[in-house]
Write a protein that binds this DNA or RNA. Structure first.
Lengths: 337, 337
DNA sequence: AATTAATGCGCAAACCTTTGCACAAAATTA
DNA sequence: TAATTTTGTGCAAAGGTTTGCGCATTAATT
């Protein structure tokens, strides 16, 4: 049935015609006679002919490959993004190749270099936490390889971007707290080198200001996401006595869960003594007793689909130079009543 | 700096030498004079020359691509497997392309076909829940494309396989229940068309038998994983009166969580009236109050790394025909005391 | 009947690289 | 000095496909 390596040459020889005729016949080129076309088609079917994609790639100078760099696959948020990207990529006949930077700039650079070498048709990336130097991104742009940043976006770097309406989410979250009579609202943010932290901070400041609440540098802390560091910062909050915050906006649900646990260990009742709101809205919260009172849903799958769509557009338009920036909606999901 | 499309031809023309000389110079072929080599190297550097991978692939008839089919990326278990695969693939210079079957055999077949067309060097797959016909796998094997099944493995299909020691885990879990004086142990399994369900069932039967416990068909139910179906089956268990099980082994943590919630809604106290154990041991359980008393950790990242390693071996050996089967350890993690 | 148009097909270049073989010039040996 | 080896380079094929151009043959037009 299926011979080892069937090429158009095989078919041409078998039929005693030239390979160009075979090629055209297979593509329904009108210049080929009906009878010849028939014979070619039939034999191709019979031999189970598959055009060699590598040869095609060589021809059209495209690989049909999309590169996706993700800090980690072991976090719900990112793997959901990947899911969205995969859907759009495969719908459009692209293959998706995935790599984890594991939050290392060095690894990130290596991945980007390998994508360049492989001549991928486009790249999507959420930058590593420690990425400080953008030379690898400049290189990509110089080579005119379409590039989309999603979620974790480098500061002051012109490019295509897809990001959450974090600021809006932050404002909504704080309004929620305000309406529950919380007035001493603090922020437990992520590392300050992440732009996504900036957004939360800005949203916090904006909301606090517009609501006429008072804040102070003591009310704004950052955590490196670890359980230990988060607990440490919570202890500082708890120890503030009179000024102790009555609500805390956390970087994400995991931070909130760690913070809540720290409360429990210090006999502070979460969502009574101190209310918690956070970002990401991981589905599993549904089963958790001591969870944040509300969480900002970020629709990660949509972040993925939008990124992929933007990249595909960019590829189609041949990098016209105009960068686009897409904001994915957020919505406050209320857990406790 | 970096010209548009630098090939060895560009360099050859610039230097007024032939492309073959350039090619050899770049590869330190001893037949090329030192001076010529120098000049070539220098210009290649200057022009930022990158060998075209597609042309190379065309030459060596390899693509450096590994295909990975996963039922979904939106489940922790699978995204952790992907993480493991990614690590090994990139360590070995392979690109990993990923697709979700979304538990549809049709989609699965399309993916496999696209992998064949793309001439990937190897394929890893966890089959869709509704996959009943294996013709697409036969096709892959006929084309001598190395193939590894992981986790969800088709029944009676000779191939490379990587699976969890589910049976061992099941036995361990039931022993755990036995030592806590549970004697009426039931099984809330996954759909019976999944082999991973078979394994749980066999482990259950084996353990129950060796412990001299009694069971009955009523003690063995299956769920389609949905909240509704799981709640329904739990209600049946709860309604059994005298015979109501005092412990239930659940297919995975999500099933257990749904089951536990059903208990709560019927004033049955989980892990007192009915104990729960399950599989997967998702990390988030740490934060959950009403969780299974114990869960069988399956080390999904390791399932991924082992699958990738096995596939790479298979590729190296050129599909010698001998299939290997790898078992990944499991370990019962106890949550409640 | 003679010119033009349409039809059917093949040649060869292009995409980029590697590599066996051949050829010339230089260096070595007899 | 003549014959042989070494050294440095180029030609061309191979890997698989597409496509512009050209060459026949046949059909249509005047």
């Amino acid at each position: 049935m299926s011979k080892k390596n069937v090429t158009i040459k095989t078919i041409a020889q078998e039929l005693g015609i030239s390979i160009s005729t075979v090629s055209r016949a297979l593509k329904n080129n009108p210049r080929i006679g009906a009878e010849t076309r028939e014979r070619v088609m039939k034999l191709a079917e019979e031999f189970n002919y598959i055009p060699n994609p590598t040869a095609l790639n060589l021809q059209n100078r495209r690989t049909n490959l999309l590169g996706l760099v993700v800090p980690t696959l072991e976090e719900d948020f990112f793997s959901h993004i990947v899911s969205g990207v995969e859907r759009i990529a495969s719908q459009n006949g692209f293959h998706l190749i995935i790599n984890q930077s594991r939050d290392s700039m060095l690894t990130e650079k290596e991945i980007i270099q390998s994508y360049i070498s492989s001549k991928v048709d486009g790249i999507m990336i959420s930058v590593a936490a420690d990425t400080s130097d953008y030379s690898h991104f400049v290189k990509v742009q110089n080579l005119e390889i379409p590039l989309v940043f999603y979620d974790r976006i480098p500061r002051n770097f012109p490019s295509n971007k897809v990001k959450s309406e974090i600021l809006h989410g932050a404002v909504e979250a704080i309004n929620f707290l305000f309406h529950r009579n919380k007035r001493k609202i603090a922020l437990l943010n992520g590392p300050s080198n992440l732009q996504v932290s900036d957004d939360r901070l800005n949203g916090y400041l904006e909301a606090v200001k517009s609501l006429g609440l008072r804040t102070s540098p003591q009310y704004i802390k950052t955590t490196d996401f670890s359980r230990e560091d988060t607990a440490l910062k919570m202890e500082e909050f708890i120890a503030m006595g009179e000024d102790r915050p009555d609500a805390i906006v956390c970087f994400n649900d995991y931070v909130a869960l760690h913070a809540i646990r720290a409360c429990l260990e210090h006999s502070v009742v979460p969502n009574r003594d101190i209310s918690f709101v956070s970002f990401a809205n991981i589905g599993i919260c549904e089963f958790i007793e001591n969870r944040p009172a509300a969480s900002v849903e970020q629709y990660p799958v949509k972040i993925g689909t939008e990124s992929a769509r933007l990249l595909l557009e960019s590829i189609q338009e041949g990098e016209s130079g105009r960068f686009r920036e897409i904001r994915v909606e957020t919505r406050l999901v209320i857990h406790a009543d």
